[in-house]
Structures are given as structure tokens and as C-alpha cells.
Amino acid sequence: ENVVSAPMPGKVLRVLVRVGDRVRVGQGLLVLEAMKMENEIPSPRDGVVKRILVKEGEIVDTGQPLIELG
């Protein structure tokens, strides 16, 4: 699984990683606000951040690609 998608609609509050960062399974990639709750979106696997597909403040839909892992 190379693309991390939004599990719910919401607003991207914070991106916690940068392109080139090594991440571990379960590590927070970004914080999504949904229904006034902050939800940290975890990495599904170990890898390297290849691309960040959203910006802070952006509104996303369920299933929208957020981050690509390499």
C-alpha cells in the first residue's frame, strides 16, 4: 500500500512529515480534523515519504489520497 488515503472527510490541520522522511508503521503522518476532533493519521507501513498530496488547511473527502510512500 503506497498511498495513504483519508479515512473520513475533514480538514488537514498539520502535516507531520516531509518528503524524504523515513517513517515507521503507526507513526503519525498528518492530523485531520473531523467533527471538531483531531485525528492523527498513521503510516500503514515502514517506508519513505515520496510525495505529500495535500496542504495544511485543505478540505479532503473520504478516500482522497494524502501521502505517497516509497
Results as ranks from 00 to 15, higher is better:
residue 39 N to S: 09
residue 10 G to R: 04
residue 54 V to I: 13
residue 54 V to A: 09
residue 9 P to M: 14
residue 31 V to T: 12
residue 52 I to G: 05
residue 15 V to N: 10
residue 54 V to T: 08
residue 28 G to L: 13
residue 54 V to G: 06
residue 6 A to G: 04
residue 36 K to E: 08
residue 48 V to D: 15
residue 4 V to Y: 12
residue 68 E to F: 02
residue 10 G to D: 13
residue 9 P to R: 13
residue 52 I to P: 04
residue 30 L to I: 12
residue 57 G to P: 04
residue 29 L to C: 00
residue 45 R to A: 15
residue 59 I to T: 04
residue 60 V to E: 02
residue 50 K to G: 10
residue 33 E to R: 12
residue 57 G to V: 07
residue 52 I to S: 04
residue 10 G to I: 12
residue 39 N to F: 14
residue 57 G to S: 05
residue 31 V to E: 14
residue 13 L to T: 13
residue 21 D to E: 03
residue 37 M to I: 06
residue 14 R to E: 13
residue 6 A to N: 06
residue 8 M to K: 11
residue 1 E to S: 00
residue 3 V to F: 02
residue 56 E to Q: 05
residue 1 E to Y: 00
residue 28 G to K: 04
residue 38 E to D: 07
residue 56 E to V: 05
residue 46 D to L: 03
residue 30 L to R: 00
residue 51 R to F: 15
residue 61 D to I: 07
residue 64 Q to F: 07
residue 23 V to I: 10
residue 33 E to Y: 10
residue 40 E to G: 10
residue 9 P to I: 09
residue 25 V to R: 08
residue 39 N to M: 13
residue 70 G to Q: 13
residue 23 V to W: 03
residue 63 G to F: 11
residue 31 V to P: 00
residue 69 L to M: 07
residue 67 I to Y: 10
residue 8 M to H: 13
residue 2 N to L: 07
residue 7 P to I: 11
residue 25 V to T: 15
residue 10 G to C: 01
residue 34 A to L: 06
residue 18 R to K: 12
residue 15 V to Y: 04
residue 35 M to Q: 09
residue 22 R to I: 13
residue 48 V to L: 09
residue 18 R to I: 11
residue 20 G to Y: 02
residue 53 L to H: 14
residue 17 V to I: 10
residue 1 E to K: 00
residue 5 S to T: 11
residue 12 V to H: 02
residue 45 R to I: 15
residue 5 S to Y: 03
residue 36 K to V: 11
residue 61 D to G: 14
residue 47 G to A: 14
residue 69 L to G: 09
residue 63 G to V: 14
residue 56 E to P: 03
residue 59 I to W: 11
residue 11 K to Y: 10
residue 68 E to T: 00
residue 37 M to N: 06
residue 32 L to W: 12
residue 20 G to W: 01
residue 10 G to K: 06
residue 61 D to Q: 09
residue 46 D to Y: 02
residue 46 D to W: 02
residue 53 L to C: 00
residue 65 P to M: 07
residue 40 E to S: 07
residue 30 L to M: 12
residue 30 L to Q: 04
residue 61 D to M: 08
residue 35 M to K: 04
residue 12 V to Q: 02
residue 49 V to H: 02
residue 44 P to G: 14
residue 14 R to S: 08
residue 42 P to H: 10
residue 27 Q to G: 07
residue 63 G to C: 01
residue 38 E to P: 09
residue 60 V to F: 11
residue 47 G to L: 02
residue 53 L to N: 10
residue 29 L to Y: 03
residue 56 E to S: 03
residue 55 K to P: 09
residue 36 K to M: 04
residue 59 I to L: 14
residue 12 V to Y: 02
residue 69 L to W: 15
residue 28 G to P: 11
residue 20 G to C: 01
residue 7 P to R: 03
residue 28 G to S: 11
residue 62 T to P: 07
residue 38 E to Q: 11
residue 49 V to L: 09
residue 13 L to S: 13
residue 33 E to P: 12
residue 33 E to C: 01
residue 1 E to D: 13
residue 40 E to N: 11
residue 18 R to G: 12
residue 2 N to C: 00
residue 10 G to T: 15
residue 18 R to Q: 11
residue 50 K to R: 07
residue 11 K to W: 10
residue 48 V to T: 03
residue 56 E to T: 07
residue 19 V to H: 12
residue 40 E to T: 09
residue 31 V to G: 05
residue 28 G to T: 12
residue 68 E to M: 00
residue 67 I to V: 07
residue 47 G to D: 15
residue 14 R to T: 06
residue 26 G to K: 14
residue 62 T to C: 01
residue 10 G to E: 08
residue 35 M to W: 08
residue 52 I to W: 07
residue 18 R to M: 12
residue 57 G to C: 01
residue 6 A to K: 02
residue 27 Q to L: 06
residue 69 L to R: 01
residue 11 K to V: 13
residue 60 V to Q: 13
residue 25 V to M: 14
residue 22 R to S: 12
residue 20 G to M: 05
residue 54 V to N: 04
residue 48 V to C: 01
residue 13 L to K: 13
residue 69 L to Q: 09
residue 1 E to Q: 00
residue 48 V to Q: 08
residue 17 V to Q: 07
residue 11 K to M: 13
residue 12 V to E: 00
residue 27 Q to C: 01
residue 24 R to A: 11
residue 4 V to S: 15
residue 3 V to T: 14
residue 55 K to S: 05
residue 55 K to F: 13
residue 28 G to W: 07
residue 2 N to G: 15
residue 39 N to C: 01
residue 63 G to M: 05
residue 19 V to S: 13
residue 53 L to Y: 09
residue 50 K to I: 13
residue 42 P to G: 12
residue 55 K to H: 05
residue 7 P to G: 06
residue 10 G to H: 12
residue 59 I to V: 12
residue 55 K to Q: 12
residue 33 E to Q: 15
residue 18 R to D: 04
residue 12 V to I: 10
residue 22 R to F: 04
residue 47 G to I: 02
residue 64 Q to T: 10
residue 51 R to H: 15
residue 37 M to T: 09
residue 9 P to Y: 09
residue 13 L to A: 12
residue 70 G to M: 02
residue 6 A to T: 10
residue 66 L to D: 00
residue 67 I to H: 07
residue 49 V to T: 05
residue 66 L to S: 05
residue 58 E to K: 04
residue 50 K to A: 15
residue 65 P to K: 01
residue 35 M to Y: 06
residue 51 R to I: 15
residue 29 L to H: 02
residue 5 S to P: 10
residue 45 R to Q: 15
residue 44 P to D: 15
residue 46 D to Q: 03
residue 52 I to N: 11
residue 12 V to C: 01
residue 44 P to C: 01
residue 69 L to D: 15
residue 31 V to D: 11
residue 2 N to W: 03
residue 60 V to S: 08
residue 69 L to E: 11
residue 58 E to V: 05
residue 25 V to W: 12
residue 60 V to T: 10
residue 23 V to S: 10
residue 20 G to K: 11
residue 29 L to I: 07
residue 47 G to N: 02
residue 30 L to Y: 05
residue 14 R to V: 06
residue 67 I to M: 14
residue 20 G to H: 02
residue 20 G to E: 14
residue 26 G to H: 10
residue 33 E to F: 09
residue 3 V to H: 10
residue 59 I to N: 08
residue 15 V to Q: 09
residue 10 G to W: 08
residue 50 K to E: 14
residue 61 D to E: 13
residue 19 V to R: 03
residue 2 N to A: 14
residue 58 E to R: 12
residue 64 Q to A: 12
residue 5 S to M: 13
residue 44 P to E: 15
residue 41 I to M: 11
residue 32 L to P: 00
residue 64 Q to C: 01
residue 6 A to L: 11
residue 29 L to K: 00
residue 26 G to F: 08
residue 68 E to P: 00
residue 53 L to T: 09
residue 14 R to Y: 10
residue 48 V to G: 07
residue 63 G to S: 07
residue 22 R to D: 02
residue 65 P to F: 09
residue 47 G to K: 01
residue 37 M to W: 12
residue 70 G to R: 03
residue 54 V to C: 01
residue 59 I to F: 10
residue 25 V to Y: 15
residue 66 L to M: 11
residue 26 G to V: 12
residue 18 R to N: 07
residue 47 G to Y: 00
residue 56 E to H: 07
residue 48 V to W: 03
residue 6 A to Q: 11
residue 65 P to A: 06
residue 43 S to N: 05
residue 31 V to H: 10
residue 40 E to A: 08
residue 46 D to S: 04
residue 54 V to R: 05
residue 25 V to L: 11
residue 10 G to S: 09
residue 18 R to E: 07
residue 65 P to N: 04
residue 27 Q to Y: 02
residue 24 R to W: 03
residue 8 M to A: 05
residue 70 G to L: 05
residue 7 P to F: 06
residue 5 S to A: 13
residue 15 V to S: 08
residue 4 V to I: 09
residue 37 M to D: 05
residue 1 E to L: 00
residue 52 I to H: 08
residue 59 I to Q: 14
residue 66 L to Y: 05
residue 64 Q to S: 07
residue 44 P to A: 12
residue 53 L to I: 07
residue 16 L to E: 15
residue 6 A to F: 15
residue 63 G to W: 05
residue 54 V to M: 08
residue 30 L to T: 13
residue 26 G to M: 09
residue 49 V to M: 11
residue 39 N to W: 15
residue 29 L to V: 03
residue 15 V to C: 00
residue 21 D to M: 01
residue 34 A to H: 14
residue 28 G to V: 10
residue 54 V to F: 03
residue 33 E to S: 08
residue 3 V to W: 10
residue 16 L to M: 05
residue 12 V to W: 01
residue 35 M to I: 03
residue 34 A to Y: 07
residue 30 L to F: 02
residue 34 A to T: 09
residue 1 E to A: 00
residue 26 G to Y: 12
residue 68 E to Y: 00
residue 9 P to E: 04
residue 13 L to H: 12
residue 48 V to E: 14
residue 64 Q to L: 11
residue 64 Q to E: 05
residue 70 G to C: 01
residue 34 A to F: 12
residue 50 K to P: 13
residue 45 R to N: 15
residue 42 P to N: 10
residue 32 L to K: 09
residue 12 V to M: 05
residue 1 E to F: 00
residue 1 E to V: 00
residue 65 P to T: 04
residue 22 R to P: 04
residue 2 N to E: 15
residue 39 N to A: 13
residue 63 G to T: 13
residue 3 V to D: 15
residue 57 G to M: 09
residue 33 E to K: 12
residue 42 P to Q: 14
residue 17 V to E: 11
residue 7 P to D: 09
residue 55 K to C: 01
residue 50 K to C: 02
residue 1 E to I: 00
residue 5 S to D: 07
residue 6 A to S: 06
residue 8 M to R: 10
residue 8 M to I: 11
residue 41 I to R: 10
residue 52 I to D: 10
residue 61 D to P: 10
residue 25 V to D: 15
residue 4 V to D: 04
residue 25 V to N: 15
residue 46 D to F: 02
residue 9 P to C: 01
residue 41 I to F: 10
residue 38 E to R: 06
residue 5 S to I: 08
residue 39 N to Q: 08
residue 46 D to R: 02
residue 21 D to L: 02
residue 70 G to P: 15
residue 22 R to Q: 07
residue 49 V to I: 13
residue 30 L to K: 00
residue 56 E to W: 02
residue 32 L to N: 12
residue 42 P to T: 11
residue 37 M to Q: 05
residue 65 P to R: 00
residue 62 T to K: 09
residue 59 I to A: 11
residue 53 L to K: 05
residue 66 L to R: 00
residue 32 L to V: 10
residue 60 V to N: 03
residue 1 E to M: 00
residue 38 E to W: 06
residue 37 M to Y: 12
residue 42 P to K: 04
residue 28 G to E: 09
residue 31 V to W: 09
residue 1 E to N: 00
residue 46 D to C: 01
residue 5 S to V: 10
residue 24 R to K: 12
residue 40 E to Y: 13
residue 20 G to I: 09
residue 34 A to P: 10
residue 11 K to C: 01
residue 62 T to M: 05
residue 7 P to K: 13
residue 24 R to Q: 13
residue 31 V to N: 11
residue 69 L to T: 12
residue 11 K to F: 11
residue 37 M to H: 12
residue 42 P to V: 13
residue 48 V to R: 02
residue 29 L to F: 02
residue 54 V to D: 01
residue 30 L to C: 01
residue 21 D to K: 02
residue 13 L to R: 05
residue 23 V to A: 05
residue 58 E to S: 03
residue 46 D to G: 10
residue 5 S to Q: 04
residue 57 G to R: 11
residue 35 M to F: 11
residue 29 L to E: 00
residue 51 R to Q: 14
